[in-house]
Design a protein around this nucleic acid. Structure first.
Lengths: 159, 159
DNA sequence: GGTGAAAGCACCGAGTT
DNA sequence: AACTCGGTGCTTTCACC
């Protein structure tokens, strides 16, 4: 939970790797005018410190036939059931993220589906969970940003 | 936009790479009992087809001191201003995702911040955008799932 | 904490079946 | 379409600074 101290070189290494994990360390080394060994050691340290949790592929879900995104707010009959309901939600495929929230909804989740029909099936599964009072769906018509690099820069700018 | 045909071997290759992009192709080859060259050719094809859009590092934002997540629903004075407002939102740091939505809100976004105070600054910036009528914030108290691998398996199971 | 070189591998293309 | 194989180049370690 504690803050970890990263210097300018770490920032730049992350900057080059954040949206392309396969950039050779030798390229990074050249650009930063340090040795490839140093890049290696620093990346390893950030991994050990847990700053770098891992790496992942970015797939094009639209091309796979899954272009539907919606957010679903869930109202519970009783907040004491939150944990139970969350566990049931976690079992539903195509629910990609779930949060316990304050504010309007008790639980809030994101789903990705093939189309409206398919999303309906997923939402019905949410509605059918014992303890769920009702749900409210917001369909995404256009996703406009989703940029890790930008967030990272915002963070580094504040350091 | 069109569906792209992936076979069982492609599924397994993606399965191994999706949450660790640095798994050596030789390891994948061993596990699937094919040659490393084949793995290479298949990955390249998926990249060329755009199924694999890229790769990214997963950072631990909590460890960087940014543990606050909230969703903010935005109501507009007039929906004709949607495009303009979205552009302004895209300029605000710490807004990580924004969607145009149907349903309760006109625009819906996710923010990541240091703490409540910091989030307040971000939300004020949203409120201050010309054309924004008001906003509604849902604070995430606990994020429960966020798993690409699970989504991918859900998709493959349906194919 | 950084370097530079050397050893060990992985990547990736060419040629073959 | 997949395999083998070889050249090229990346990663990773280590002795030294």
């Amino acid at each position: 939970m504690a803050k970890f101290k990263l210097d300018e070189i770490d920032h730049q290494i992350l900057d080059m790797l954040i949206d392309n994990t396969r950039v050779p360390f030798t390229d990074i080394a050249k650009k930063l005018v340090i040795s490839a060994g140093t890049v290696h050691v620093r990346v390893k340290k950030m991994e050990e410190a847990g700053i770098i949790k891992g790496s992942s592929l970015t797939l094009d879900y639209k091309k796979l036939g899954y272009s539907f995104i919606a957010y679903v707010g869930v109202f519970l009959k009783n907040t004491s059931q939150t944990k139970f309901v969350l566990e049931r939600i976690n079992e539903i495929p195509f629910v990609t993220v779930a949060h316990i929230t304050t504010g309007k909804f008790n639980v809030f989740c994101k789903i990705r589906a093939r189309n409206t029909e398919h999303a309906k099936d997923v939402i019905f599964m949410l509605d059918d969970i014992e303890g769920v009072y009702r749900t409210e769906t917001m369909i995404s018509m256009e996703e406009s940003i989703n940029d890790k690099k930008r967030l990272m820069h915002s963070i580094f700018n504040e350091m």
